[in-house]
């Protein structure tokens, strides 16, 4: 269980907080989407959880660990328990797929061994298994910059999974991908989270994907939680509250009658034909 209590982050030399007094509980095994406009504090929130960003005040508890109090070595140990997936994949381009995946286990290997790429055989074995699971087994020795966007994101996912994490932080995993690949990647992340019983917190711009793939949606606006419930409750009013006034009638269930459903289905078909 991950608990966030009264979390506030104010960046130096800024007037307002990026996130302000956020309190949330994330039960084990839950897949949560965080939606909200750019600058709402989504990235800041998940980066506070693994302390890539230092919180200004508040508490974060991952099971029995008080995240905010950790110093260098124990902070490293904490980060080993948290996997992270990035929008631009964040791979080292000139390293191979395998090297990128193995970098997920650097925390448990000495510097000298990692420089010579001597990883323990159990780690290599599980890297092969995970690469097989994400469908990249035949790309092991390719350089990361030879892969397509979807493949690169799969490498990013494999790197996070190799950590055998308790928690998955996912920052805009689909924002750089085409709609079809975006759905596949989203399905993969959610499927794997279920398979490994991981808690996954997914920042995502795409409301439709968020609603389809997650059990719980948190809406952030100006650094505060303005919505926290199941996707079903996400109507025009709530979307207006999260993103601001717009014509949301085409993005919600409320207006979804059979006509628009079939219209959406036929658009999906046409898009499918394009692929």
């Amino acid at each position: 269980m991950l608990s966030v209590k009264g979390l506030t982050k104010r960046y130096p030399n800024t007037e307002i907080s990026a996130i302000e007094d956020i309190t949330l509980d994330f039960p084990d095994g839950q897949v949560i989407a965080i939606i909200g406009p750019s600058g709402a504090g989504k990235s800041t929130l998940i980066r506070c959880i693994n302390r890539l960003v230092e919180p200004t005040s508040g508490e974060i508890w991952l099971n029995e660990t008080n995240v905010c109090n950790l110093k260098s070595e124990s902070l490293r140990k904490l980060r080993c328990r948290i996997g992270m997936i990035f929008q631009e994949y964040a791979l080292v381009d000139r390293l191979t797929v395998m090297e990128n995946v193995l970098s997920g286990k650097l925390g448990s290997v000495s510097l000298w061994k990692s420089v010579r790429r001597k990883f323990p055989q159990p780690v290599v074995k599980s890297a092969f298994e995970i690469l097989d699971r994400v469908g990249l087994l035949d790309q092991v020795d390719k350089r990361a910059d030879e892969l397509s966007g979807g493949q690169r994101q799969r490498v990013g996912i494999a790197r996070a999974l190799l950590q055998q994490p308790e928690l998955l932080l996912v920052d805009e995993p689909t924002a750089s991908l085409d709609p079809k690949t975006a759905r596949q990647i989203m399905r993969l992340i959610v499927g794997l989270s279920k398979e490994y019983n991981l808690t996954a917190i997914i920042n995502i711009h795409d409301v439709v994907l968020a609603r389809e793939f997650t059990q719980r949606i948190i809406g952030l606006r100006d650094g505060s939680v303005v919505y926290d419930a199941s996707p079903a409750g996400l109507g025009t009013e709530t979307l207006g509250a999260i993103y601001g006034e717009e014509d949301w009638s085409h993005s919600t269930y409320e207006s979804d009658n059979n006509d628009s459903d079939s219209a959406a289905a036929s658009i999906d078909e046409k898009l499918g034909a394009l692929k």
Partner: peptide, 27 residues
């Protein structure tokens, strides 16, 4: 160098020296 890649390696719990040797050096 691409900072996001360094951030990603830091996030896996790697030491700072490993971030340099695994993330910066190849780049």
């Amino acid at each position: 160098v691409n900072r996001e890649a360094l951030e990603a390696i830091t996030a896996t719990g790697a030491r700072r020296s490993q971030v340099i040797f695994f993330g910066v050096v190849p780049q």
